[in-house]
Design a protein around this nucleic acid. Structure first.
Length: 276
DNA sequence: ATGGTAGCGCTGCTA
């Protein structure tokens, strides 16, 4: 199974590029962030034409997340498990089960400046996400949570940690929030397959940052061990950040060897059977 | 020299 994630920075502006990318990358599941669309404006038909079912959680002008799948799309749930009916939440979290794997698409708040109210809300949101995952999921079950975390986990994920405005995306509390997810049992799959620095997923539109390779790795695929152990390939597609009308993020894709990604262990069993 | 671009939508905010 191939799972991809992409912050598209407006699906209305990016639909042709997303369609093009789906056609050549052929993901089985595609998580999108920052669709910036109301649910009523979501282009379900365009994705159906490419063979994808879709679920969208949008609010209109800001945020908005979606999951596209051609391997089933069941048990769709938007938002946090402790969310109240009347709670006015931003459209930043959506879950669905695709091909036997629970999949989440997340768009973590930016935080703007360290110490601002927005920064505190970002930390609270990340903590609420951790509590949601810990309460609703089991690290021994197949789970993939991917999206724009707006946190670069380590200094090797950043072109220059000292030059970021306000120091968000690299502060210790933000990194600790991501580390807490990893301690629970989520693996940074791209990092498990690539040790190198200078592998980024986002570049500011301004000042030629992409051309100068001044970026951050803030888009992550986090998977529980039953899934992460089966990862065979991971790629940040910098090609999709080039050319006409790009998003400021590149898509990240990961391949999982999935003749049985649901964790029943058919491969181990068949090896055992071969030896017996 | 401390800048810059893009999206939304029509004014200035958000990233």
């Amino acid at each position: 199974m191939r799972i991809a994630t992409w912050n598209v920075n407006s699906l209305k502006a990016r639909l042709p590029r997303v369609e093009e990318w789906l056609s050549y990358a052929q993901p089985d599941v595609m998580c999108l962030q920052e669709t910036k669309l109301a649910d009523s404006a979501f282009p379900s038909m365009a994705f159906a034409a490419l063979g994808y079912e879709a679920a969208h959680c949008g609010e209109g002008r800001w945020n908005g997340v979606a999951i596209l799948s051609r391997v089933g799309l069941d048990d769709v749930v938007a938002g946090f498990s402790d969310q109240q009916e009347d709670e006015d939440t931003e459209a930043r979290l959506l879950w669905a089960t695709c091909g036997g794997v629970r999949i989440g698409t997340v768009y973590v708040p930016n935080g703007r400046m360290v110490g601002s109210e927005f920064y505190e809300e970002k930390l609270a949101w990340l903590d609420r996400l951790r509590r949601h995952v810990e309460g609703a999921c089991d690290p021994s079950e197949p789970l993939v949570m991917c999206g724009d975390f707006n946190v670069a986990p380590e200094d090797r994920d950043v072109w220059d940690p000292t030059k970021l405005h306000g120091g968000t995306h690299v502060s210790q509390p933000e990194r600790e929030a991501v580390a807490a997810l990893q301690r629970w049992g989520l693996v940074d799959v791209f990092r498990s397959l690539h040790d190198e620095d200078r592998l980024y997923s986002w570049w500011d539109y301004r000042a030629g940052d992409f051309h100068q390779h001044r970026g951050l790795r803030i888009d992550l695929v986090l998977a529980t061990k039953p899934v992460a152990e089966r990862a065979t390939f991971a790629l940040i597609d910098r090609f999709a950040r080039k050319g006409k009308l790009p998003s400021d993020h590149a898509p990240l894709l990961v391949d999982f060897d999935d003749d049985d990604v649901s964790g029943a262990g058919s491969r181990e069993r068949s090896r055992g059977a071969g030896r017996s």
